[in-house]
Write a protein that binds this DNA or RNA. Structure first.
Length: 335
DNA sequence: GATACGTGGGA
DNA sequence: TTCCCAAGTAT
């Protein structure tokens, strides 16, 4: 067996004694559980994911069940978790694996990356966690850890900087049995090498750490350029009929794609009264929404494609964007 | 390479 | 309040 770096050994041993071993997707590991959890965890905190993961596994216990599920079933479960393309791709992935790979997960990185929604990180994660084979990973945790450990400056998403992170990951990841290493860098980043107030006194690689030695932990990783968030206006229609509310399915791709939403239009409608307003902060823009109640006899024109009248008492059964659900609930409380 | 894509938590 | 960030990917 090839000589493994001391850093690799240290991180693996730390993981086995101090790392996380009780996360739901670490129990009776299967490629499917690893896949689902890794998709859910993209840009999403562990604590947020856990209840979604539990519900998902109860409803879609395997690839076959998932492949046969409707998009609506999947979106209803995913509502509130965000980045809804992930949910649609997960369902596509199940169909793809059933049709192209006999319902089995491939175990090489290239084939894993060909799965819808699986990129370089997730392919490495599946290979490491599910197969315990060589699977380098670079995520936010790893970037923070490596930036400090090796003194890697520059915006982490800049391609040249990103390339450095991946080179380090490929170099340090052991050729076999890479699970403990992959889990180790994630756990170190998440629980010790935190963005704020890192626990350097508990860090197993403190002696090797550039940032610790140079006392520049708070300056690494380098800050990204912040951008001005644009404000967008939206006009939603509130149309009720027999205690039912009119919804329209959001197109994909696009914001809230695949979820049901109040019908939206560019301009404020004529002959309508303002029922209420809400604002919502997306990561890339602020939404200023107005909700218009149409006059009684007025029918919303040209809205019948992909629409449904949903009983207000049965809103739990469809996937709604979080701020829209919140608005509707607030209105109900007032009534 | 830049941008779109959600939501909630923490400082 | 506002901003950054969290197990990134697709286009």
């Amino acid at each position: 067996m090839a000589q493994q770096s001391k850093l690799t050994d240290t991180i693996m041993q730390w993981q086995q004694s101090q790392g996380r071993h009780n996360l739901p997707w670490q129990q009776t590991i299967t490629p499917y559980k690893v896949h689902v959890s890794e998709i859910m965890l993209q840009q999403t905190q562990v604590a947020t994911v856990i209840p979604y993961f539990q519900r998902w596994m109860a409803l879609f216990p395997d690839l076959e069940t998932l492949a046969a599920a409707s998009e609506d079933e999947v979106m209803t479960l995913w509502q509130g978790l965000g980045y809804y393309t992930r949910a649609r791709n997960l369902r596509k992935a199940a169909q793809y694996l059933n049709e192209q790979h006999q319902g089995q997960y491939p175990d090489d990185l290239k084939a894993l990356e060909a799965i819808p929604g699986v990129g370089r990180y997730t392919a490495g994660a599946i290979r490491s966690f599910a197969f315990n084979s060589y699977g380098p990973i670079v995520d936010g945790n790893v970037k923070r850890l490596f930036a400090r450990l090796f003194g890697i400056y520059g915006e982490p998403n800049k391609s040249s900087v990103n390339k450095e992170f991946w080179q380090q990951a490929e170099r340090l990841t052991p050729p076999d049995n890479s699970k403990a290493f992959a889990q180790g860098v994630l756990d170190l980043g998440a629980t010790v090498c935190k963005r704020h107030n890192p626990l350097c006194t508990e860090c197993p690689v403190q002696a090797d750490c550039f940032a610790f030695e140079h006392d520049c932990i708070e300056h690494l990783p380098s800050a990204k350029k912040s951008k001005v968030k644009p404000v967008k206006d939206a006009h939603f229609l509130w149309h009720t009929q027999d205690n039912k509310l009119l919804f329209k399915k959001r197109p994909s791709p696009g914001i809230w794609g695949g979820l049901w939403c109040l019908p939206e239009q560019q301009e404020a409608p004529e002959n309508a009264s303002l029922l209420g307003q809400f604002t919502h902060q997306f990561s890339h823009y602020s939404l200023q929404a107005s909700v218009w109640q149409l006059n009684n006899v007025q029918q919303p024109a040209g809205l019948y494609q992909n629409t449904r009248l949903q009983p207000i008492s049965e809103l739990q059964q469809i996937g709604l964007p979080t701020p829209v659900r919140r608005f509707i609930e607030d209105i109900q409380t007032l009534v």
